[in-house]
């Protein structure tokens, strides 16, 4: 991975973190969290940890779906 790619994917991670903190809507926060995960994946691939990459890529949406369960319950209740 050369310097341009490190800069591009690092900028994606930082941009996603800032957008997650700034935005007020819960769905906007979850979408920005997806950008953070997308920026981290090439760093995992660059080390050659393919099993960790596959496991992390399948666990990250699971965590998002758990949070969505709470959001849906809250929308139904109120």
């Amino acid at each position: 991975m050369n310097e341009l790619l490190i800069l591009v994917f690092g900028a994606m991670v930082v941009l996603g973190a800032i957008a997650t903190i700034i935005s007020r809507d819960l769905f906007d926060k979850l979408i920005s969290l997806g950008i953070i995960v997308a920026g981290i994946m090439p760093f995992l691939a660059d080390r050659g940890l393919l099993d960790v990459l596959a496991a992390t890529a399948l666990i990250a949406p699971l965590s998002t779906i758990f949070i969505l369960m709470a959001i849906r319950r809250k929308k139904d209740g109120s």
């Binding site: 997650t20 819960l26 953070i36 949070i67 709470a70 959001i71």
Partner: peptide
């Protein structure tokens, strides 16, 4: 919920 989403970072 906002605190839980921020805890993921």
């Amino acid at each position: 919920l906002v605190q839980l989403i921020n805890l993921e970072i």
